[in-house]
């Protein structure tokens, strides 16, 4: 669990950065004249934290198959979308004015979720390449020692 929390913390910071970028892009597209107070700095942190909750709920020590992991990831994504949309639009009535924002937020959540996973995978790929290099050196060393 300790390792999973560490991992989730890494995901949190990646998510916060991406949420920040999404808020900037969506804001510029939909409400470029909107002004905020200092509280706007807290929103990415709150949404990032909300986005990490499903990962802690769905955590399992079990070695999952690809299919199981895929189902878990989809459930997580829907849960994150539900939670964030609930927090953002729970008290707002959907009208023709707010509908584009709603759709924009949902699309952003999906893109951010995919990007967080892709970035995580790129980091893992780097680790795997380094490990394979170290492995080859290790195998050569042991083979030489046994020769």
């Amino acid at each position: 669990m300790k390792d999973h929390i560490k991992e989730t913390l890494g995901i949190f910071f990646i998510a916060v950065t991406l949420i920040d970028a999404a808020m900037f892009i969506l804001g510029m597209m939909l409400q470029p004249d909107m002004q905020f107070g200092y509280e706007a700095f807290v929103y990415p942190l709150i949404y990032g934290a909300i986005g990490c909750i499903p990962s802690l709920i769905f955590y399992t020590k079990k070695e999952m198959t690809f299919k199981q992991a895929l189902v878990r990831d989809l459930l997580q994504m829907f849960m994150i979308a539900g939670l964030i949309v609930g927090v953002m639009f729970g008290s707002i009535k959907l009208t023709s004015d707010t509908l584009p924002q709603f759709i924009g937020v949902v699309i952003s959540i999906v893109i951010i979720y995919i990007l967080v996973n892709v970035i995580g995978w790129v980091f893992d790929m780097k680790t795997a390449v380094k490990m394979t290099e170290d492995l080859k050196k290790y195998q050569e060393k042991i083979t030489e020692e046994n020769a």
Binding site: E63, M64, T65, F66, Q68, A69, L70, G120, W121, D124, M125, T127, A128, M131, T132, L135
Partner: peptide, 9 residues
């Protein structure tokens, strides 16, 4: 060694 799609290697 490669990253596995289920979050492990």
């Amino acid at each position: 060694i490669r990253p596995s799609l289920n979050g492990r290697f």
